[in-house]
């Protein structure tokens, strides 16, 4: 199965939040399907950790130039997936479709993924001691369905499909907006964003000047994890060098001792 992608087009979006609603419904259906909750309880309980798609409305600038954007906070399903790389139990896997999925059964709630994610996406739930994030509806996609958010979108502001066709459509839309509004639009995540995340399976079409307002940083990384990586990689090297150095000192001491004993015997 080839890599699948989702694209969110900020210009076509009418902020109806059907995507968010359908995502929440889908996750409640999953609870029912997996026998974890009955229908009534699953519909009447808050599951903030299962809201994989969260709109965050922001206003910036001063009147009369003040503007609003609605940033969508969600997993971007990074090519390099730092959450997966830092998960100590291997509970996070990359599906053939490119979806980065947390296996609930092997997640131990250590929150390494939260520390690693430069987009601050995974959510820890103390009640279940697990971490949650968007699974790109891998269960639906691998059975020939669309992601629930895409399925709900009434304006095709969200669309999905194979990597090549999604990128082509996204780029075409971005070019069209650039011409129509006379300002550059970009497809965030189409190309390698940086070495930490790689490219993304969740693309976003947005005006270049507003990309940061859509919570899409130009250089996403977590400094604390760079220290952690440094400790992991340098630790082994420094320990090896130290062991060799101490071993050499011991051999040197043995040779020196032999020398001293023979000098003593000669005296």
């Amino acid at each position: 199965m080839s890599r699948k992608m989702i694209c969110y087009d900020t210009q076509s979006c009418v902020r109806c939040f059907s995507c968010m609603l359908n995502c929440s419904v889908e996750n409640r259906v999953r609870l029912q399907r997996n026998g974890k909750e009955n229908v009534e309880k699953s519909l009447n309980t808050d599951y903030p950790h299962l809201d994989y798609l969260t709109p965050i409305r922001k206003e910036f600038g001063k009147y009369p130039e003040a503007r609003q954007v609605t940033a969508f906070h969600h997993c971007n399903h990074c090519e390099n997936a730092p959450c997966k790389n830092f998960c100590p139990t291997g509970a996070i896997e990359k599906r053939q479709t490119g979806a980065i999925v947390i296996n609930e059964k092997t997640c131990i709630g250590c929150r390494a993924c939260i520390d690693a994610c430069p987009y601050d996406v995974p959510v820890f739930n103390a009640a279940t001691n697990r971490t949650y994030k968007c699974i790109l509806c891998y269960d639906r996609v691998e059975n020939g369905l669309q992601q629930s958010c895409v399925e709900a979108c009434p304006t095709s502001a969200m669309f999905s499909g194979d990597e090549a066709e999604v990128i082509a459509e996204a780029q075409m839309r971005a070019d069209r907006y650039s011409k129509a509004f006379n300002e550059p639009y970009i497809v965030y995540g189409k190309d390698r964003v940086n070495g930490y995340v790689g490219n993304l399976a969740w693309l976003t079409i947005a005006p270049e000047k507003d990309v940061a307002h859509y919570m899409l940083p130009a250089d996403p990384y977590k400094a604390s994890m760079l220290f952690h990586s440094f400790a992991r990689t340098s630790g082994a090297a420094v320990a090896a060098v130290t062991a060799v150095g101490l071993g050499a000192h011991f051999v040197y001491w043995l040779a020196k001792r032999k020398e001293m004993i023979s000098e003593y015997e000669e005296d």
């Binding site: 601050d120 604390s224 994890m225 220290f227 952690h228 130290t242």
Partner: peptide
């Protein structure tokens, strides 16, 4: 979360230093 991540990194770095 950011403070937790920093604490985790400091814990890891000082563990390596202690090991050496």
């Amino acid at each position: 979360d950011a403070i937790g991540a920093l604490a985790k990194s400091a814990h890891a770095i000082f563990f390596i230093l202690i090991m050496i």
